[in-house]
Amino acid sequence: MTLNRKFVWPLMATLLSTVGAHAAEFDLSIQTHFSAESLKGKNVQSLVDDIERMTAGRVEIEMFYSASLVKATETFDAAVNGILDGDMTGAAYQTGKDPAFQFVGDVLGGYDTPWEMYSWFYYGGGLEAAQPLYEAHGMHVVGWWISGQESLSSTSPLASVEDFKDWKFRSPPGIQTEIFADLGASPIVMDFGEVFTALETKIIDGADASNIATNSEIGLYDIAKHATYPGFHSMPADHLAINKGVWDSLPDDIQAIIEVAMEKMAFRETLSHSVEMGAAAKAAQADGVTLYDWDAEQREAFRTFSRAKWEEWGEKTEQAGDLVDSHIAFMKKIGLITQ
């Protein structure tokens, strides 16, 4: 029997196409508040690409950038409630649920470098201390990604703790305002987008806005000719947290791939921003900005003030207390806290 090529070839092409375009076994939807064009967004996309490639297409991820599905502060709840599968925003957004989230989002004045913070998470009991907090809210934390130290910008010198006295500056809400107020500063909570105008009109003398590269991009150093670098006061971490039911439904090999891909992405995040911030610092100095790299004594003084506030927040809930105790124990182990 002779087959008619007119009918056979189209049939074979259809069959091959169907085999090659098989549907993924697992479809995950995740949201980040960063834009796809930003360095953070590009690093997030590398995570997506790695997971899809390492699973040979068994996992497909739909990533929503720029908080395009729900507001950034609502991402966690959207994942809890099944609107999304995962959240790649900041844990500090969830301090209204439990103050403990502050201590997986930003340990103000705690660590000097992102690597110390990662070390707490992976080798200092951080993951074990944080996981019950996430599970209590129906989530599973996979890992952190940390850009690096943030820089304070000012129209006056910031050489020591004493320079915070009567310093009027933009501050994000939360524990930051309490720490700086105790140091004699006058923190004013305002939106990020209002900072430049507030500096220009002298409503504020400085700002706790972002890292030195972002501060440069928005023009803060056209006005504020003093900045801390590398920063010491804040080093925000964003997380990858997955709905616990979704996470538990994934096979062990898929879970391991996501964990490994997250570690790679986190470290690349820190490295890429280190390059970006270093270049920004060099350019800022060339433009007449004075940079202040606080010595160990001044950092310890700020950490001591901050620690008092951590411990105060640690009394609010059991989970907060557990996380604060975990951080302090690890800082003592690596010598950041001596007693």
Rank of each mutant, 00 (worst) to 15 (best):
L3P: 12
M12W: 14
T18E: 06
G20P: 05
A21W: 09
H22M: 12
A24P: 10
L28G: 00
F34E: 13
F34P: 03
G41T: 04
L47F: 14
M54V: 00
M63N: 10
A67P: 07
L69S: 12
T73M: 13
E74Y: 07
F76H: 08
V80R: 13
I83E: 13
D85T: 05
T89D: 08
T89C: 13
A92V: 14
Y93R: 15
T95G: 07
P99N: 07
A100Y: 00
F101D: 04
G110R: 02
Y111H: 02
F121Q: 09
Y123I: 12
G124C: 02
L127T: 15
E128N: 05
Q131A: 11
P132S: 02
L133E: 05
L133M: 06
E135Y: 03
H140V: 09
W145K: 08
G148H: 07
Q149D: 13
S151N: 05
S154E: 09
A159P: 03
F164P: 00
R170K: 10
T177W: 01
E178G: 07
V189I: 14
D191P: 12
F192V: 06
E194K: 11
A198F: 03
L199P: 01
A207T: 03
A213E: 03
T214Y: 09
N215A: 04
Y221L: 02
A224P: 05
T228C: 01
Y229P: 03
S234T: 05
G245F: 02
S249E: 00
P251F: 01
I257R: 00
M262N: 08
E263T: 08
H273D: 12
V275S: 09
A279R: 08
A280S: 04
A280C: 00
D287Y: 00
G288H: 03
W294Y: 09
E300Y: 10
E312C: 08
K316A: 13
K316L: 15
K316P: 09
T317N: 15
T317S: 11
A320M: 04
L323H: 00
D325L: 07
D325C: 01
I328P: 02
M331F: 06
M331L: 08
K332G: 07
